[in-house]
Design a protein around this nucleic acid. Sequence first.
DNA 1: ACTCGCGATGTTAACGCTAACAGCCGTGCG
DNA 2: CGCACGGCTGTTAGCGTTAACATCGCGAGT
Lengths: 334, 334
Amino acid sequence: MADVAKLAGVSHQTVSRVLNDHPKVREETRARVLHAIDVLGYRRNLTARALVTRRSHRLGVVSFDTTLYGPASTVYGIEQATRAAGYFVSIMSLRTIDRAGVNEAIGHLAEQGVDGVVVVAPQRAAAQALADLPAGLPAVAVEGRHGGDVSVVSVDQVEGARQATAYLLGLGHETVWHVSGPDDWLEAEGRREGWRAALSVAGRAIPEPLTGDWTPRSGYRAGKILAGRVAEVTAVFVANDQMALGLLRAFSEAGVKVPEQVSVVGFDDIPEAAYFTPALTTVRQDFGEVGRLSIGLLLKQIEPAEPFGHEHLIVPPQLIARDSTDRARTALLH
Amino acid sequence: MADVAKLAGVSHQTVSRVLNDHPKVREETRARVLHAIDVLGYRRNLTARALVTRRSHRLGVVSFDTTLYGPASTVYGIEQATRAAGYFVSIMSLRTIDRAGVNEAIGHLAEQGVDGVVVVAPQRAAAQALADLPAGLPAVAVEGRHGGDVSVVSVDQVEGARQATAYLLGLGHETVWHVSGPDDWLEAEGRREGWRAALSVAGRAIPEPLTGDWTPRSGYRAGKILAGRVAEVTAVFVANDQMALGLLRAFSEAGVKVPEQVSVVGFDDIPEAAYFTPALTTVRQDFGEVGRLSIGLLLKQIEPAEPFGHEHLIVPPQLIARDSTDRARTALLH
DNA sequence: ACTCGCGATGTTAACGCTAACAGCCGTGCG
DNA sequence: CGCACGGCTGTTAGCGTTAACATCGCGAGT
């Protein structure tokens, strides 16, 4: 910066002013400085800037297994929204989730000087970790649970599951079976809850849900079990598309026709879902919107224009009807 | 830090020494300092540290659409390897790839003070951008092309495609058709090349390849076309699993049996592949290894123990045989 | 003509840390 | 007994930037 100043014949402070678009710089001076910057190929040192301004313009993201479609999409949405706001992203992708691990990750990010963190915290343990944040660190939880003083953005899992279940009932199915995600995932809990609520409201029997771990393999196992009870099972709501894929495969092997004998609904709308055999009816989540909203909430804490309270924003999901759902065989028999 | 020093009754420099595991600190002093740190909940400011040491311990990653399985897995592998080495990761995920965009991203990361960058550069344009790196910035290209003075780590796409094609020929197929990825992707080019080479070596006819864009939709379109020529088509090598899914769907709709009439091989081994109907034979890439190797190469540049040259490391892929491949119908007729 | 105000620029002092050097004390050796 | 040396700690000076205040010149208002 000193070199630029010397070449332009001004003080380093004037160079700084040009760099920061300070209004009170003469047009001609500005041009001279810009020219000098260009000639020398100067790039400012944002580390030094961060030290004095106490703003790194970097946000931290803590996530879990960014190989999975949901987390990957969420992180991508967050990343895009962050850059649109003129910030950068530092990421920590955890291999296992536990309270201590999440806390440690947040601590490292805080040490690194991020201005705030987004915790993509779909598990109960991660959500709890937000209780003991470093003091004064702005934070937003994505898919976390509301409670305490943390802002939260989440897709309305309960509503999505309710829609899926109600849709199946609307097709004439007597009841709907459920393959759930792991117990410690909040999303699994929300989807189970919505499914149960829809059945309750309609006054239908609530079958014992099966539990998987989001993988196709676990869906396959559940499918094997349900295929053996095809007399009573006419509709299944599966908590994500990957498990639904496994279930479709198990059904196909067992000769159970979808949707003729059993209707299946998934959750997520992964890019592959429309090309499953049959094309999967599922519930789409708008991850881009989740990213935008969470960054919006975070920046509101970082750059508070007005006093803010902690909010809980909810993004509505959308049912995408395809070919894996149909009128129940039992309904047709009547 | 001053507060900690005061509480522990030492100078700030001694606190710094404790933090940096300097050997010449008395055990008792160290304990006193650590206690003071604990009491005050002090966290060091890595920004200030970076300013003076000229090392941020942060690496930059430039990638394209981290929603896709390949890039997402690569970035995940890089992230894990980076953390294992005691570094942090700043990420820039580009929505579109062009030389200027990649350069700009690298420039931003350099300004942010990263110690080096990994460019996940599967497109030709991205690979070219590495030609004009900011001077002195350590860099590694993943899936890029060797050339110029940049270290590269890549999966041997040519070999993977060769294996897949040779496997099909070994099953008795007269030739193998190909659904390729987009022209501007180096991976697509490599896979096309390997397929072509395997056919050449065996002295077989080389059909005109179809071109897709990695999406299931484009694979579906290719499948529709190939299903119409089922008399001549008995084996297809598809450049990725998602397109293979679309192709399987098109075949299923057209009543073409896989593998009885046509054998299909994909590429990537996405988690869903084993649960396609039929389970997809495919080529697995070890993304974790790619991540580890690229970080290794990068750190060798950042912390040079000995003079280093730019290397090109190649990770071997692995064919995973499943149920979508079988002896050719034509072979059975003989 | 003299001040006042404001636009444009310069000067100085941090930001929180580490490197480099300085100093002090006790031990061992000539 | 003096001195060198090494272990341990303290002091000082930056790293590259921005904030805050100082300065200077010029046009407007009285």
